[in-house]
């Protein structure tokens, strides 16, 4: 007989497990039911329901928020694959609303305007799994400790320029290599360094009031003291050292515009890719979507990547990331 008291929802195993099922796949940004259908037909493993794709968010300016739940619901009703949706960094109420709506994964995303300059959401308190952006090992470790079931390198969304996605994947890979040769004491120091990001609120208040800075037993984030945070980050770092990779799935995102871009990110070690504006800002979305799925599957077969790239029409126009001002770079949001 089934012991119902042992029935559990939203455990770390279930949340991380969901993300593992996406591996080797392409997750596509869509803004309506029709686009979601195109993505599903092309073989996307999931869709990200948005009000506007990142390129249009960038062009429109203003505050970018959670999409209209009615729109998200329409997309959920249109496809059988999982539906993800974005919330602003730190916006617990948007996240609770999306959880209530029943989206399969929440992206706490720098593509939207951040709601909290101090903290990200404590994602362990949710049943629904989260994916978060990261552009360095420190950001990834903090998000994983907070309960993210999946990491995606941030790249620079809405640019159609893969350079930042490559930068962030290289930075994280290199940092993991550094970690592999390190002893426990040295790793604990890294954890202390990574934990400083949680002290901004407490320290700015203490400074204004002329008080001493944070001590190990000061509560700095949710119910956690500084030393709790350090211990938590330390455990994540040890796990990364022992596994030689992040303990959660790591996708690439932010600027992937062509099948070759997608294949390149897989070659650099991504578990899969998010394609945002790249598909529906191209001249032939259904073909583009299929070609990117094929390129991810055959990332190590150059002849296949060449074949699927033939005659696809124009990729999205794209932006030179190096000409963007710091305030225009979405990746700076949420460290």
């Amino acid at each position: 007989m089934v012991e119902l008291e042992k029935l559990r929802f939203g455990t770390e195993l279930i949340k991380r497990g969901f993300a593992k099922m996406q591996k080797g796949g392409v997750i596509m940004d869509v803004t309506n039911a029709e686009q979601a259908g195109i993505a599903e037909d092309a073989g996307a493993v999931a869709v990200m329901a948005l009000h506007k794709v990142p390129a249009d968010i960038r062009a429109a300016g203003g505050v970018a928020r959670m999409a209209d739940p009615k729109k998200i619901q329409e997309i959920m009703d249109a496809v059988t694959i999982p539906v993800m949706a974005k919330v602003r960094i730190g916006h617990v109420a948007e996240a609770r609303a999306l959880e209530a709506l029943g989206v399969d994964m929440i992206d706490e995303s720098e593509v939207l305007t951040p709601a909290d300059v101090f903290f990200h959401i404590d994602k362990r308190k949710f049943v629904v799994p989260f994916v978060c952006g990261a552009r360095s090992l420190g950001e990834a470790v903090r998000r994983i400790w907070e309960g993210a079931a999946m990491i995606r390198t941030k790249g620079e969304a809405g640019t159609g320029n893969v350079v930042e996605a490559v930068r962030h994947m290289r930075l994280i890979n290199r940092a993991i290599d550094e970690l592999k040769g390190m002893q426990k004491e040295a790793i604990y120091s890294v954890a202390e360094k990574f934990a400083e990001a949680y002290c901004k609120l407490a320290n700015s208040v203490k400074e204004e009031m002329g008080l001493n800075a944070v001590t190990p037993d000061t509560i700095v984030y949710e119910e956690y003291t500084f030393v709790d945070v350090v211990d938590g980050l330390y455990k994540v770092l040890l796990e990364i050292r022992d596994l030689g990779r992040l303990p959660v799935v790591n996708f690439s995102a932010g600027g992937i515009a062509t099948p070759a871009d997608a294949a390149f990110m897989m070659q650099l070690g991504a578990d899969g890719v998010f394609v945002g504006s790249g598909i529906f800002k191209s001249s032939n979305p259904p073909e583009y979507a299929k070609a990117i799925v094929e390129a991810v599957r055959h990332y190590d077969e150059p002849e296949v990547v060449a074949e699927v790239s033939k005659g696809l029409g124009d990729a999205m126009k794209g932006l030179d990331v190096f000409k963007l001002g710091e305030e225009e770079r979405l990746q700076e949001r949420g460290v």
Partner: peptide, 22 residues
């Protein structure tokens, strides 16, 4: 249901015994 309804539970698996099923 959807991901929110995903669960884990110990189940009797014939020929194996009780297995934590995810």
């Amino acid at each position: 249901g959807r991901q929110r309804e995903s669960f884990q539970v110990p189940l009797e698996f014939k020929g194996v015994g009780v297995v934590e099923a995810i």
